[in-house]
Design a protein around this nucleic acid. Structure first.
Length: 648
RNA sequence: GCCCACGUAGCUCAGUCGGUAGAGCACUUCCUUGGUAAGGAAGAGGUCAUCGGUUCAAUUCCGAUCGUGGGCUCCA
């Protein structure tokens, strides 16, 4: 028998026997309640099962409870196992594959002869609840890969056998609860009784190992939390997010619609939505001019040979629409770069002319697969705030920094948080390795210079070059790409672009493709959700609505309306034969920033009574003051960055 | 493109186990002139997504197509 060891738990030294488990040590150092809430043990940065022996080099052990980020991941992962157990019990023919924890929950993929129905999900969930009631322990066994392989092969779990073979390691761990065993790295909660708050949410098809050439499995998604209260909060949050859904608000605020007869992924912009777009685009045009961009514009369709020359025909054809005119094949543009290249080429450039920054609000058409269309966020016809910057190699870094700064300034206006990612060379691509490397380094360098953190998305670049992607989130916290900066060393080559250098010789410029908002359609979608449809004053299609108390004030209301319109304010008057309360309610539902109420008192004093969208009552103000308030509010976001903008 | 679910009035949704449909809101007209989130009455409005099949009879059952939603794959 070896002597007892001293371990620090929650600030005190406890003495444990050799061979003691983490649970043994934690039990000695923690209160009963603290111990009961523990789902894992942590030693240094290693997470351990409570039932695991204390590592030999461990001097301090702490408990991880279910409501910590690490605890939640384990709860979710263990719930995935719990679900797999239930599925195997109800449907023994189903084969298990993988089942990880994901954001807010988990999934598990199964290979089964028929699709799971919503009724199956209910039965599976009920079986899971029974298993929780039985409070089964999760037991970990370490065995040789050969043993594990034999065991899963005997059970007919061919996917697990494949996983073991691919791992190619001497030993693996297998977790068992009740009659269900799964190949798993762990760790897990000690008992099923700790899994008290989960709900199965949906079934979906998913390809084995994410490859569409592989068999399609059935993925069951669920959400899991540390307590029923948190589960409820999450489900309530989903409900709230649904209210902000841009597709719902698009109808409610009469911004846009889709029409079956037009085709999937094609947006019809209604007057309100088209106005917001127009303001955004106007803002962008002015901002681009300030930053040294020039406006250009090309046609919607270009000869097919041009797309062959650019490489799009080889690399992007499946996403393009084609048409034929006078026996000549044309491609409808999925990108704007070709016209811009030809504009550059139309006249000899000197090194003094660079950089050339060509900006176009270009409408592009892309044949996206039918299953990916999603409201405004993924469409087949959209407008890009696109620019192509042609510069000398020595200007590349500064140009990228300029773009990143532009993105940051614009996102600040909307108070968007964003994430940056660098995507590197994909398999299907063109160009020399050293060009790719040089371009990737330039992108990294620019982000680092701006002090912006970034992730790496290996192999996700465009076929012509690496890129920086900027992502913002929708109401459900799904990330959508907006801004992107893409380096391109190949198009200038293919189109033989050049400039005359100081030395009198011809040199090759480098090109940046970049967008700031990305697609106006997508950005509008995210923007609607971001503001819950309550656009800031500068963007609101109607900035002020005049509400009369009775029709006795119609004359004054019309005078107020004319005055505001002359001041450049987007105003309208509600003169309907309705009660004030009714008009206020409608204006609130329409998210109108300013309600200007006009009754006899206001007519008398020649002004309006101002109610703001948030519900606050500003009280009586003279007409001139009312206009000033609205104009001031429209300027507010631009003051933050020392910018200015007005739509007129 | 693939898997699952869905498609009834402008919107949100009932309903028909096969016998051509209903509510609330919105809309039109009338009454009401009412001070900060819904005053009242009447009226109008639907080839039950489209096309085919089964049936005496299909909005309902079956199939295809189009579209929508949740995922997978792919992308702004």
């Amino acid at each position: 028998m070896q002597p007892a060891r001293q371990i620090e738990v929650a600030g005190q030294q406890v003495s444990v026997e050799a061979g003691a488990t983490c649970a043994d040590a934690l039990k000695l150092g923690l209160s009963g309640k603290q111990f009961k809430n523990a789902v894992l043990a942590r030693c240094n940065d290693t997470l351990l099962d409570l039932a695991a022996p204390i590592p030999a080099d461990c001097a301090e052990l702490s408990a991880v409870s279910a409501d910590t980020p690490e605890g939640l991941v384990v709860i979710r992962h263990s719930t995935a196992h719990l679900m797999a157990e239930a599925v195997k019990k109800l449907f023994p023919a189903a084969k298990v594959t993988i089942g990880p924890a994901v954001e807010n929950g988990f999934y598990y993929d199964f290979d089964f002869e028929r699709p799971f129905t919503p009724e199956d999900l209910e039965a599976i969930e009920a079986e899971m609840v029974r298993s929780v009631g039985a409070d089964k322990p999760f037991a970990c066994e370490v065995m040789t890969s050969a043993e594990a392989r034999e065991r899963f092969a005997a059970q007919g779990e061919t996917y697990k056998v494949e996983l073991i073979d691919d791992l190619a390691v001497p030993t693996v761990s297998v977790y068992t609860q009740g009659a269900f065993s799964d190949l798993c790295r762990g760790p897990h909660v000690p008992r099923t009784g700790l899994l008290k708050a989960f709900k199965l949410t949906s079934v979906a098809g998913a390809y084995w190992r994410g490859d569409e050439k592989n068999p399609q499995l059935q993925r069951i998604y669920g959400t899991a939390w540390a307590s029923p209260k948190e589960l409820k909060q999450y489900l309530d949050r989903l409900e709230e997010a649904k209210k902000r859904d841009h597709r719902k608000l698009g109808v409610a605020l009469d911004l846009f619609s889709f029409h079956e007869d037009v085709g999937g992924g094609m947006v019809l912009w209604h007057p309100n939505g088209a106005l917001v777009r127009a303001i955004l685009e106007d803002f962008e045009r002015k901002e681009h001019l300030k930053r040294g961009y020039q406006f250009v514009q090309g046609p919607l369709i270009l000869k097919r040979e041009l797309w062959e020359k650019s490489g799009h025909y080889d690399n992007y054809r499946e996403n393009m629409y084609f048409t034929e005119i006078d026996e000549q094949a044309y491609g409808i543009k999925p990108m704007n770069c070709l016209s811009h290249m030809l504009i550059y080429k139309s006249r000899l450039k000197s090194y003094r002319d660079l950089p050339q920054r060509y900006f176009e609000l270009g409408v592009v058409h892309r044949h996206e697969k039918s299953g990916v269309l999603h409201g405004l966020l993924r469409v087949r016809s959209f407008t890009q705030d696109d620019a192509h910057i042609l510069c000398r190699p020595d200007q590349l870094r500064e140009e990228i920094i300029g773009v990143i700064r532009f993105v940051r300034d614009v996102m600040d206006i909307f108070c968007f948080d964003f994430e940056a990612e660098i995507s590197t060379r994909p398999e299907k691509s063109i160009g020399a390795d050293e060009d790719w490397e040089r371009a990737t380094d330039a992108l990294k360098d620019a982000l680092e210079h701006m002090g912006m953190p970034y992730g790496i998305n290996a192999g996700d670049g465009a076929f012509y070059g690496p890129k920086i992607d900027i992502k913002i989130k929708d109401a459900l916290e799904r990330r959508w790409q907006c801004a992107t900066v893409q380096c391109d060393f190949t198009l200038p080559e293919r189109f033989d672009l050049s400039y005359v250098g100081e030395d009198g010789a011809r040199h090759r410029p480098v090109m940046l493709h970049r967008v700031i908002l990305g697609s106006i359609e997508r950005f509008m979608g995210v923007l609607i959700e971001h503001f819950s449809g309550a656009f800031p004053v500068w963007l609101a299609p109607t900035q002020a609505r005049i509400l009369t108390v009775t029709d006795a004030q119609n004359g004054h209301a019309e005078k107020v309306l004319r005055f505001l319109q002359e001041q450049g304010i987007r105003a309208e008057a509600d003169l309907r034969n309705e009660k004030l309360g009714y008009k206020v309610r409608e204006a609130q539902l329409d998210r109108i920033p300013y309600m200007l109420i006009v009754g006899d008192k206001e007519v008398e004093a020649d002004g309006v009574n101002v109610r703001v969208r948030g519900g606050a009552d500003v009280g009586f103000v003279p007409l001139v003051e009312a206009a000033r308030i609205v104009r001031e509010a429209a300027q507010e976001p631009f003051k933050r960055g020392g910018m200015s903008y007005s739509f007129s």
